[in-house]
């Protein structure tokens, strides 16, 4: 919480540079806001969907059996070589029995169990199921963030956003994984196993949150310099809240033109970012039309606060070395205006 407190003070005072230094310190603890009570928001052991729960249950079964097999095998070794050390060797017949039971029968049982459970659960988690898959979202892996395109039933794009996937609770959403650069892998462990986004392919993954909640996920396939901080948030909410959210995301920017927009355009931000309803229509970076509605910035790396936004704009590579966005250091008043504007993009 410490970091957020500092960040909220903003850039109003004349000691801008000193503040910026302080902001750099932020990057050492950007996720403190998650600390309290948020452990497990990116964990396969805290399933929040039926798919993840099935796999977690399978995991516990396998761990238990593995521990059992381990103890029996090491135990036999310890008893045979330690306890019975120097006694008679096993007869040929008992040796053969030992090898056949331990080395052939036990593995065969394990293989059958692995195979049957794997096929059954795999079929279940990877299938569309009858629950209906009205919602289709294109998830596009970028270097190093995620573009999310919500499609309507005709396959037309309704809304474009970035790094924060909203899903309706209890519905099976179809995520189509795309990439126009390198291979990424979409992994929100609380909801589902991972699937790769491969250039030239359209892989499909289903996500069906069973409860309301906010989770984090991140890229799981090494995709270059900033693979590490290529995260995203998943927000599951009731259908009506989701509809409201989607409607807003589909609209043009709600903020009225302000001095900050001019700063935005003067700095050239519009070359890479889109703010729908303004001249900014760049395609390289995340769509910022509703930036202020998101919980995080920099691909789920920093909480979305005024201080963090300022720090990100002025010292991008301190937060994310290698990020493709350059740093900008506008005049203090301009920065102030810019942040005012960005914070109004609800």
């Amino acid at each position: 919480m410490r970091s957020e407190g500092k960040a909220k003070r903003g850039f109003g005072s004349p000691q801008e540079r000193v503040r910026l230094r302080l902001l750099r310190l932020l990057s050492s603890a950007p996720f403190a806001f998650l600390l309290s009570g948020c452990q497990g928001i990116q964990s396969a052991l805290d399933p929040a969907s039926r798919d993840a729960r099935l796999v977690a249950e399978l995991s516990w079964w396998m761990f238990t059996s593995a521990v059992f097999i381990y103890i029996v095998t090491i135990g036999l070794l310890a008893v045979g070589a330690g306890l019975f050390r120097g006694r008679k060797r096993l007869s040929f017949r008992s040796s053969t029995t030992l090898v056949i039971l331990g080395g052939v029968c036990a593995p065969i049982i394990a293989i059958i169990a692995i195979g049957v459970s794997g096929v059954a659960i795999g079929d279940e988690t990877e299938g569309a199921r009858e629950a209906g898959t009205a919602l289709t979202i294109e998830v596009v892996g970028k270097q190093w963030w995620w573009e999310l395109r919500y499609l309507d039933e005709a396959g037309e794009v309704i809304a474009v956003t970035a790094n924060e996937l909203h899903l309706p609770v209890g519905e099976r959403a179809r995520l189509e994984l795309l990439s126009d650069n390198v291979i990424h892998s979409f992994w929100a462990p609380n909801l589902q196993g991972k699937t790769d986004a491969i250039p030239g392919r359209r892989n499909v993954l289903f996500a069906e949150p069973a409860v309301e909640g906010v989770w984090r996920g991140q890229c799981a396939e090494f995709c270059g310099k900033q693979h590490t901080l290529m995260g995203f948030m998943v927000v599951a909410e009731p259908r009506d809240e989701f509809n409201a959210w989607l409607e807003r995301q589909a609209s043009d920017a709600l903020a009225p033109p302000a001095p900050g927009l001019d700063v935005f355009l003067d700095l050239g931000c519009g070359g890479c970012h889109t703010i729908r309803g303004t001249p900014a229509d760049g395609q390289k970076g995340p769509d910022l039309t509703h930036l202020a509605s998101r919980r995080t910035i920099a691909a789920a790396t920093l909480p979305n606060s005024r201080g963090n936004l300022g720090g990100w704009i002025t010292d991008t590579h301190e937060v994310k070395p290698g990020a493709l966005m350059p740093s900008f250091i506008p005049e203090p008043q301009d920065l102030h205006d810019l942040l005012d504007y960005l914070e109004a993009l609800h």
Partner: peptide, 13 residues
């Protein structure tokens, strides 16, 4: 364990 497809999709990479 990782031979199992659904389990591996969680722990892979």
């Amino acid at each position: 364990m990782v031979a199992s497809v659904p389990f591996d999709r969680q722990v892979h990479d």
